[in-house]
Structures are given as structure tokens and as C-alpha cells.
Design a protein around this nucleic acid. Structure first.
Lengths: 398, 398
DNA sequence: GACTTTTGTCAGGTTGGTTAACGTAAGTTC
DNA sequence: GAACTTACGTTAACCAACCTGACAAAAGTC
């Protein structure tokens, strides 16, 4: 009898109460009442339901104002579990997290460069099951989220033309995982996931945030009003394969003159090959060691990406820019990018602008994906549906 | 007793019913019922209220399916009046419109290039009063909307640092008009107003739209989810004063190398001065006549703006680009812009892209401003407040 | 004229919230 | 420890909003 009827979410429903608590941070019952506009009696009922679902919890007390202290409530985002995975051109990383992005366990896999879903999916399924068992959190699993390079067709649940992963084009990605784990599967572009990670890590501000990822490839994600802007064909922010004027550099996507052909990790590896570089890790190491040719190459890449980011900043006028990826966080790259943005962007867009490296290191995508799961599972409509199911299961309680 | 209490808009309130009707187009009562989820009895009550407020009207009938024909209802966006004004560097145009953007009367004023609010505002007040009287629509006036070049501080209701209108910086713009006409005053950037005009003219699609305006200056507006994206300091889309690399052209804003310094109407007028051009109108005329030097200059400007628009398209991935302004609609400019975008933008962002000249000609900004007024006055919360006032005025009806 | 469909209205019932009152828990002040 | 204050939970009576069902009129078709 798990019929999830389409629940109409009213501005007084439990889901909405949870939404207010989620948006306005830890609150006492009284504060919640005022903000939602419910009576004390009804609020007790709402919170009772939410607590039975494990969605809210007490976190402490306000100071006494002469009597009993008020209990402070917050959304319980550590009780449910997400299985998240970050899939790249040469790696696949899984993690088990809670809805806040805390990583309980992770598992890194190296993959051949031209891997195919047939090889990789079974590996991910096994590794996911294993991770869930090891952490003992299999029973609280509520969703899975997966980040991949390239655009995603969210309606069909497939990746579209990932330039460097041709075998993945059009392959169904949701079904195998949904079938194996019995939970919904969310998909997101890798740069978008990273941008969301930094956004959530900032505490979900109202302001817009641009996340730039420069690793093997180049991508960006734009967070507006707390959500990734995806655009008409899901390619919003895919700045890697725009052309820069005057360049004829051949790109791995088949065209010429792309930004990624000159400024990506792949391009740097190629350009520094005469100096003995073989892998992206070599580039990173040499820049870290301060080797002149590597530093200059990173700075030039930062300048190139910076011209594009300057336009992004002028168009979107965000509060935050966060730069991640193996190349993106290198100081010479970031400094050149920052200087270029400051020289080229519209003056007033620079006034409240804050360009920093991504704060999250290796777990950036995981935090983003976990937040995506949280937004999905803690959305008013989802919560109200859970409440309806709960009450269908326990029709009368005496 | 016109106390407008802060009305909580429930998903069954009159305001919400109107919102559904507005979003889903003309509907019969039955169709509305299904979509809103109300019983017939209640829907009759809702529609009664909305009709008494003059907010819905019948527009015709469905074909009979064997019995009485169903009446088709739609939002009445012609009953209320907006006073809209478009303020530029050398002109001020007022119009009286309905909420759909139909222009009943307009009035053009030429202004000195370095005008100040002290001179212009009284002129606008007089002209506005006159227009309202002439059209006989003064009694249905519900709001005023004003578009100006430069950024707007929406909280304070002032323009911020309009580069070419220094006397307007920080001057209160809402108060004088609000006091004179006794209605709310909305402010919007001129390029944003034009973008909104084209957006509304397309029937408010779900897709994103970028509006580019190239007249005396250069600006752009980004419409996402039916709303202008304004950004952190209200300068989103202000592409005119970003720097293009390699240019040292002095700009009217005081800096060097701005896009507007090379590709705006002002820049074209300057560059073509040796050939006898004096005004922007001269440029337009000569391009229309096919004069080689003017055509080449327009095409080069289109190419320059196109490089920026290519980045915009890649970042935002919109469904529509609309190019307006005196220069923007010139075929050589538009063609060069289109070619540059198609050469430089991300391939998949080009797939569903539709680049056309702005459809609205001289009235573009008016349509945008009228739509802005409509969104404000027909918003659920506003409507519910009107209903509350109506019922406070007529407490019991027998 | 008989039938069908849409629209309006009345009346009674259900639901989901309200206020009011009481009781308990957990603090502070003297 | 007693008196007071504030927070929290529960019950009961109440009330407004919306629903269902029944009836009727209007406006079509066959």
C-alpha cells in the first residue's frame, strides 16, 4: 500500500514547516510558529509528525529568559544516507554520505581512459553495495546521485555526447542503479556538482555563485536562486568548448580553437610534454615545485579561462566565484584568472565579487550531490508524501 | 479603512486561481477546476470575486459537445492602465498602455545630452498627466514603470552610476512619480525592459531568453524562469563596459577598451565622422543605403558584440536571443553577430538557439514595462490583498 | 420536445485549523 | 525551598472553508 498520491502542498503542511526550518536555520517552536503562521497546537502536531519521520531533531536550548529554556530545533540531515558517485574520464569515486555531505566512506577506482558503461557500471554497483555494508548505513539509504562530465538529458536520464567519453553517449544511467539499490537516482554534470558543493558549503546564500572546474577538462556551473541553471539543452556553463578567437589549436572534441584545447589539464600536459611531463599529476607537481615553464603555462591557462570568466561575471553578476579542479586550485592559475577577471569584467560586477579556490578539495562533488539529494528528499512535496504514507500505515493512534 | 493586511496566499485562493489562468491561458471553468483542484461551488465563488474586481472576463465558447457550450475565461489584462516611460541619454518617451502592452498613446521628448533630473522630472510629470487625460484612462491607472540606462538599486529606488548620465546618480526616482500619480512605481534597466518585452511578446515561454540592445550604448538582459536576472549589484547583463583584449579605445565611461568604445552607436558615429556622419540616425541611414564604409563598420561592431554574446549563449544556453536597438536591428550588424555566435559558442548551445531581431520596434521597452506591471499587479499576493479589501468594503452581501 | 451539458445555488457534513483552559516541566529569583 | 516565569503538551469547544449532493435554470443538440 505504498501509493504515493500526488500531495498538494499547502502553506501549513508539515513539508512547508520543514522548508521554513531548513531555510531559516535552527529555530525554537515559538519562532517557527511566528514564521509559518500556525497555532501552537497545530505546530506541536506538525513537529510530532516530522520527528516521527526522523526529519527534525533538537540541538540545544536558548538561554533562559526567566523560565524554562526554549528548545532549539533543526532539520535532521544526518539521519538519512545518500550514495554518491563522481565519474570522470579516468576515475570513478564513490562515497556514502549523509544529506549534509559528511563523507562516511569513499572508494576510488582508476579506470581506463576509454572506458564503457558495460565495464564500469558493474564495478560501481559492487563498490556501492560494499560501501553501504561497511558503513552500516544501507537501511537509511534514500537516494543515489551521480556526477558525470558532459551534458545530461534529465528527462531521459542519459548523458548526451560527452566529448571524451563517447561510449557513454545515450546510455541509460538511472535504471541500473535504481534497480540495484531501489532508490531514486539523480544525475548532474560534474562542474555543476562542484559548484553546488561550494554553494552548499557557504550555507545556501541567496546570492548567485559561479563554480569553475579546471581539471582534465574545463567546465562551469551557475547557481541562481539556490538551483543550478541548466539551460535549454542542458549545456549551460559548458565553457570548455567555446572557441577563442585566433586559436587554431586542435581539441580532443574534434574541433579547433576551443578553450579546453589551450587551457585544460589535458592541454597543459600536452604542451609540457617536451619538458618531460607525462600526466596531469606531473603538471600539478611541477607547478608546485615552482618550475618556470610549468608556472608560466598555468598562468597563461588562467588568463585564458579568466577572459571567459570575466564575461560570465559580467553577465551573471554573482557574489561568489569558486575555482576547483586539479589545475584550477593552483596558485599561478588562480592568480592569473583573478587578475584577468578584474581587468576585463564590468566594474560594478567586481564590487561585491569574491573569487576564491574551491573550499572542498576532493569531496567537492560529493557535497554538491548530497545537497542535491537533500533538496529532493526534504522538498515540501516529498515530505508531505512521506507524511501521507506514514498516516496511511498508522491510521489511528490512541 | 484601506488596511492591506499581509495576505497569506493559499493554493486555493483567488490569487492562485488567477495565477493558473494566467499561466495556462484561456480555460473553461471545468478545466480551471481540474487544474486548481477546487470544487465547482468554490470555483464559482472565486470567479465571482475575480469578475467583480474586473480581473477575468469571458472571451468566447468552446464547441458544444452535445449540450450547452462551455464559456472560455481569460485574464482581463486590458482593463487596467499603466503609465510607462523609457528614459535615454537624449530622449524620454512616455506611453499609456494596458497590462498587455497595448499602447494607447505615446509622447516623445528630445532631451539635451547632459540633462538632469531637476529639468526632466517635471516634464515627465506634466506629460504623464496629459497623456492619461487624453486617453481617458486616468481612473484605471494601477502603476507606473520607468526604464533607465545603467544599473538600478531596487531597494533604494535610485539609479546607480549611469556612466553617461552622471546627474542621475543616486537621485530618488520613485518618489516624485509615486507622489504625483498615487500608484507604485517600478524601475528597470533599459536593456532589461527590452528583453522582457520580447519575452512577453513570445507568450512567456519557460525557456530562457537573452535580449541584447545596441543603440547609443550597449546592454543586455537575461530572462530566466520568467524573470530578469539582476545579480548581486543589479548589473547583470551590463556587457557594454567589459573590456575586450587588445583594444585601447577610449570609452565615454572613462576607461579604455570597453566593448561600447568600439561597437556602440556612439562609437560608430565617432568612427564614421570623417565620412560626414554626425548623429546615430546618420549611421542608420547610411547602413540602410548600403554605403560600404558604414556597412563594414556595422558588421565589425556585430562581430565584436557577437564574441560577447557567444559567451553569454554558452553560459546561459537560452532558447531565444533577441537583438534590438537602433544599431542592433541593422541587417549587417545582426548577420555578423549571428555568424560570430555560431562560430564561437558551444555547439550544443546552438542546437535550439533562435537569434532574431527584436520584434517590437519602438514599443519594445513599453511592452516589457507593461508586463512588469502586470506581474506585479496580477501576482497572487496582490490579488488576494485586493480581494481582502473588497470584502472589507462590502462585508455582507445578501 | 426530449436529451445533454454547463452553470448557479442551497443545505448539510467534513476537515483542518482555531482559541481557551488546564496541567506539567524546567528554569530563575528571593 | 517557595514563588514566580516561561516552555511545552493535551484536551475540548468552536469556527471557517471547503466538500458533496440535490435541485434548477440556461443553452445547446438531435
Amino acid at each position: 500500500m505504498l501509493v504515493t498520491k500526488s500531495t498538494q502542498t499547502s502553506p501549513t503542511s508539515p513539508g512547508h514547516v520543514l522548508g521554513v526550518l531548513r531555510a531559516e536555520g535552527p529555530l525554537t517552536r515559538q519562532e517557527l510558529q511566528e514564521r509559518v503562521g500556525l497555532s501552537r497546537v497545530t505546530m506541536v502536531e506538525r513537529l510530532d509528525v516530522l520527528r516521527r519521520l526522523g526529519l527534525v531533531r533538537a540541538t540545544g536550548h536558548r538561554e533562559s529568559s526567566g523560565g524554562r529554556r526554549a528548545e532549539v530545533l533543526e532539520v535532521n540531515d544526518t539521519g538519512r544516507t545518500a550514495l554518491v558517485a563522481d565519474l570522470g574520464q579516468s576515475h570513478a569515486t564513490l562515497a556514502v554520505t549523509d544529506l549534509r555531505g559528511t563523507v562516511f566512506a569513499r572508494d576510488d577506482h582508476r579506470l581506463p581512459v576509454r572506458h564503457s558503461p558495460r565495464d564500469v557500471v558493474p564495478v560501481l554497483l559492487d563498490a556501492g553495495r560494499d560501501l553501504l555494508n561497511r558503513t552500516g548505513r544501507a537501511d537509511t539509504l534514500c537516494a543515489m546521485a551521480l556526477s558525470v562530465p558532459g551534458q545530461i538529458d534529465h528527462e531521459r536520464g542519459v548523458t548526451v555526447a560527452p566529448p571524451t567519453m563517447p561510449d557513454w553517449n545515450g546510455k541509460p544511467l538511472r535504471e541500473p542503479f535504481a534497480d540495484a539499490f531501489g532508490v531514486p537516482v539523480l544525475l548532474e554534470n560534474d562542474a555543476n556538482a562542484l559548484a553546488l558543493g561550494d554553494y552548499y558549503a557557504m550555507g545556501r546564500p541567496d546570492s548567485a555563485l559561479i563554480g569553475v572546474k579546471v581539471g582534465t577538462g574545463i567546465g562551469a556551473g551557475v547557481v541562481i536562486s539556490g538551483r543550478i541553471h541548466r539551460g535549454e539543452s542542458g549545456s549551460a556553463g559548458e565553457i570548455g568548448h567555446m572557441r577563442i578567437e585566433g586559436s587554431e589549436q586542435r581539441c580532443s572534441c574534434g574541433r579547433r580553437g576551443c578553450v579546453a584545447a589551450s587551457a585544460s589539464g589535458q592541454a597543459l600536459t600536452r604542451d609540457l610534454r617536451p619538458t618531460g611531463v607525462r600526466t596531469l599529476a606531473d603538471v600539478v607537481r611541477r607547478v608546485g615545485e615552482g618550475r618556470g615553464d610549468a608556472v608560466r603555462a598555468a598562468a597563461e591557462a588562467g588568463r585564458l579561462v579568466g577572459t571567459v570568466v570575466a564575461t560570465m561575471v559580467t553577465i551573471v553578476n554573482p557574489r561568489y566565484v569558486r575555482v576547483g579542479g586539479a589545475i584550477g586550485v593552483l596558485p599561478p592559475f588562480l592568480e592569473a584568472l583573478r587578475r584577468t577577471v578584474e581587468a576585463n569584467a564590468h566594474a560594478s560586477a567586481l564590487r561585491n565579487l569574491d573569487i576564491e579556490p574551491s573550499q572542498l578539495g576532493e569531496n567537492g562533488a560529493f557535497v554538491g550531490l548530497a545537497g542535491l539529494v537533500a533538496d529532493e528528499m526534504l522538498a515540501p512535496a516529498t515530505v508531505d508524501a512521506m507524511v501521507a504514507n506514514l498516516q496511511a500505515a498508522q491510521p489511528e493512534r490512541t
